[in-house]
Write a protein that binds this DNA or RNA. Structure first.
Ligand SMILES: [Mn+2]
Ligand SMILES: [Mn+2]
Ligand SMILES: [Zn+2]
Ligand SMILES: [Zn+2]
Lengths: 132, 132
DNA sequence: TCCTAGTTTATAATGGTTCTAAATAGGTGT
DNA sequence: ACACCTATTTAGAACCATTATAAACTAGGA
């Protein structure tokens, strides 16, 4: 299995459940955005498997800590995750509550002029809210 | 009272509780960031008044809808609000969990090249995460 | 095969936010 | 001032995403 090494590298045992989660998350050309609830449904419907919410939360949190997933900063009652872990930005369609990727070529370079003593910039994320 | 008009203009009756909330939010030269819990404590400590959480939530949500407050998109279990409703961006200090304003002069112009059919850009917000 | 630590799971707990419904206060007309 | 109607406040319940718990199960090495 292609994900065993990926899981092992991040200190996670390759269990049946984690491999299913990996398939749903990474066995696709296109990256995507999801909530835990989205993911749970996808595993049930596309994989005909039931994985408990506790396991999904644990695994997703582990992946996020290891950098295999990113959280998207957005005001929502649910946390949004992104399988695209490259630096990129987002449109957020307020009506449809949908996230859309902005490729780096879609946004000009962002120049942060202010510095904070002893602090390093870890990430720069742009959220463009859309209406209409 | 200087906030009666402000409240009336936005369809809210100027009650004692709402006026207290206005004092804490707007009776200051500096703008600031807060959570509902922060605000509740501030009202208790600085104003020696108790306003119920339900009233605080209702009023803050009304102010946000009217544009007197902004929500800051950030991944946190609590919602962060901003009394600075001008267009501006933020540092987020991951260690201290503190928000810091970036003035518009601190960030170069942001050029969104991509367009979505029938959608209009409502806001562009940059979150710069700081570590160390 | 045995052993042990890691994992999964159902379920409970947590905590921020929203809802409810009864009591209170604001505002308008008299 | 009073009556009346509606908005508002409030304590507490409900809601719901997320995290914690602890018992059953599993992976993998000895
Ligand atoms: Mn997390
Ligand atoms: Mn809100
Ligand atoms: Zn994305
Ligand atoms: Zn701000």
């Amino acid at each position: 299995m292609k994900y065993i090494e990926k899981l092992r590298n991040s200190g996670l045992r390759p269990t049946k459940q984690r491999l299913k989660i990996c398939e749903v998350l990474f066995d696709t050309k296109k990256t995507f955005h999801f909530t835990i609830n989205d993911l749970s449904k996808k595993i049930k419907n596309k994989m005909n498997t039931k994985v408990s919410l506790a396991t999904i939360y644990n695994t997703i949190n582990a992946f996020e800590k290891k950098g295999y997933l990113k959280q998207i900063p957005i005001n929502s009652n649910q946390t949004y995750f992104d399988t695209n872990v490259t630096d990129h930005h987002h449109f957020y369609d307020l009506k449809d509550e949908k996230l859309i990727d902005l490729e780096n070529t879609d946004v000009g370079p962002i120049n942060i002029k202010k510095k904070i003593n002893g602090k390093k910039i870890k990430s720069v994320e742009v959220l463009v809210k859309l209406e209409g």
